[in-house]
Simulated scan of single mutants.
Amino acid sequence: MTLTQLRVFWIVASSRSLSEAAHSLNLTQASVSMHLRALERDLGVELYERGHRGEVVLSTAGHVFFGHVETILNAATQAQRELSALQRDTGKRLRVGANTTGGMYVLPEITRRYRKILPDVDVQPMFESTVKVVDLVLHGQLDVGLAAGPVDKKRFEIMSSCPDELMLITSPDHRFASRGKALLTDLISESVVLPGTGSRSRWLLESTLNQAGLRAKAYLTMNNTEDVKRAVIGNLGVGFVSRYSILCEVAAKSLVAVEIPGLRIRRNFELFWQNGQVAPPHFLPLKQLADEVFRELDAKANRILPVTS
């Protein structure tokens, strides 16, 4: 039994998906399965069961083992921190991880202001999936995370948060654009452009649309939000993206944000770190700066985008 196997087990159990865990760990799905089988052989028990639609569900033994694994990984992380503290130099650093949307549209302004008031701090940004960012903060490889929540408030302290909404976007010459509104049933005849299958936005969108009983004519998958926007501008379909990602395009009239009455796909961007963490003084301005940027982004979005009901 190795720490790598325990970490693979923890991420699979947390995400309930072999494919999402493989993506977060930068491993193949076959490699993830190999680690899990080796762990089960060492323990002599089965840790997982197959749930509905391929979801991975912990067995009774898996649930018991999960609590112990968290304790072991946390102890290993603390030991690593203490050893690193003995070796690192006196330079100050701030390791901030963000999911794709937060990293592209929110974090740059926060880090720009932070560097202006604390130029001697080495700010080290990293962009990963939400699952990976959460895992890296939990195990001390990132100091702070920024992601589309919610994050587990038992493990993390939310330093600052900002309301976000996934909005329907079209090209200016689309039939929805002149109306400014669309019904859910209108989407049945549309191709819907979505972000990659491993993203939290994709999961939230599919869950919301499935609950509404909606099935679009076709779904097109793009790598990231920028690709979704380009596809929509090119009339490949309509899309759903964070409202903060389209402020420039809507202001320039290259994209149109369209309201769907009765449908609000809401979430929060959350800046977080480990619960109980004793933060060094150079971490503290980050909360105030994030609060400022979040307020300004929210106000700008409210000015530019249509008010949804």
Rank of each mutant, 00 (worst) to 15 (best):
L39D: 06
L86C: 08
G91Q: 15
W273P: 00
T101F: 01
M159H: 04
K217D: 04
N26W: 11
N74G: 11
A76L: 02
T221N: 11
L138Y: 10
V69S: 13
K217P: 00
L289T: 02
K116S: 12
L187D: 09
V8L: 05
I188Y: 14
S191N: 09
V307A: 15
A212N: 08
I110E: 01
S17D: 05
V45E: 15
E270Y: 09
E296T: 05
I72Y: 04
Y219K: 03
S24V: 04
P261T: 08
N275G: 09
R179Q: 15
K229T: 10
I169K: 02
L86F: 09
D42L: 06
K132M: 11
S14H: 03
L58P: 02
T28L: 01
W10P: 00
R215P: 00
Q277D: 12
V137T: 08
T170V: 06
W203S: 12
S199N: 01
A76Q: 06
P172F: 14
Q78F: 03
A218H: 09
G54A: 03
E49W: 08
H139Y: 12
S242Q: 04
F272E: 03
D298R: 15
E292L: 15
T221V: 14
R81P: 01
R93I: 06
P172Y: 13
I117A: 12
M126F: 14
K300W: 10
L3P: 03
L205P: 01
